[in-house]
Simulated assay, not measured.
Amino acid sequence: MYEIAVIGAGPAGASAALFAAKAGKATLLIDNDKGMTRRGWYENYYGIPAVGGPELVETGHQQAVKFGAKLAADKATDIVRGEDGFRIATESGQTYEARHIILATGALTDLAAQAGVETRDGTEPRIKTVIAVRPDGRTNIDGIWAAGTVAGVSVHAIITAGDGARVAVNVISELNSARYVDHDAMKS
């Protein structure tokens, strides 16, 4: 069983998976290869002069995998609460189990709604519906969290990446029963 499964692998999802895996949590990152970020060009992403969406997404995947996340190229189709967490079914017929789920599905709320997660009207242009979240990223279902555009934050990739990290830190903190902080230091 994974401690954290992240569904959606754009900036919000890959960032969440990177933080979770780097914290030593058994982490699954599910990517259906359909995200908005892949179609973009980014000249406003801090620390990077310019990058194409496919490269940005691939770099995020590589970072998460580097720290131990398992990347599954598949589409999540169902989430069912189990005794100790959740079972995630995928289009290919695979199933995964996780204690916590972070939904980072961009503009798509169908999977969340099907699982009983509450939604509300979106405020971003062209984003009609988002997941209703508390300030820490929790949804109405204990153990299911949401980050990025699907959680109602700005569609800007850098903002969704930060939100994915923020929500992951909150999930990690809950798993650890103490506030989690990740600061790297330069090697001398």
Score class of each variant (00 low, 15 high):
Y2N: 11
E3Q: 14
G13P: 00
A14V: 05
S15I: 10
A16D: 02
A16R: 12
L18A: 09
F19W: 14
A23H: 11
T27N: 07
T27M: 10
L29S: 08
L29N: 07
D31N: 13
M36W: 07
R38A: 15
R38I: 13
R39S: 07
G40L: 13
W41H: 12
W41S: 13
G47Q: 11
I48D: 02
V51R: 09
V51W: 10
P54A: 12
L56V: 08
V57D: 01
Q62C: 00
Q63P: 00
V65F: 05
K66F: 13
F67D: 00
A72D: 02
V80A: 13
G82A: 07
F86Q: 07
R87A: 04
E91H: 08
G93S: 11
R99E: 15
I102G: 01
I102N: 06
L103C: 05
L103E: 04
L108N: 12
L111Q: 06
A112T: 06
A112V: 03
A115V: 03
G116W: 08
D121A: 15
D121Q: 10
G122K: 11
G122P: 02
T123K: 11
P125F: 12
I127P: 01
K128N: 02
T129N: 06
V130I: 15
R134D: 10
P135Q: 14
D136H: 09
D136A: 12
R138M: 10
R138K: 15
I141H: 02
A146C: 04
G148K: 12
T149D: 01
A151D: 01
V153P: 01
S154T: 10
V155F: 00
H156A: 14
I159W: 00
R166V: 02
V169Y: 11
N170D: 05
V171E: 03
S173D: 02
S177K: 15
A178W: 03
Y180F: 14
V181T: 14
V181E: 13
D182K: 11
H183L: 15
D184M: 12
A185L: 12
M186D: 05
K187G: 07
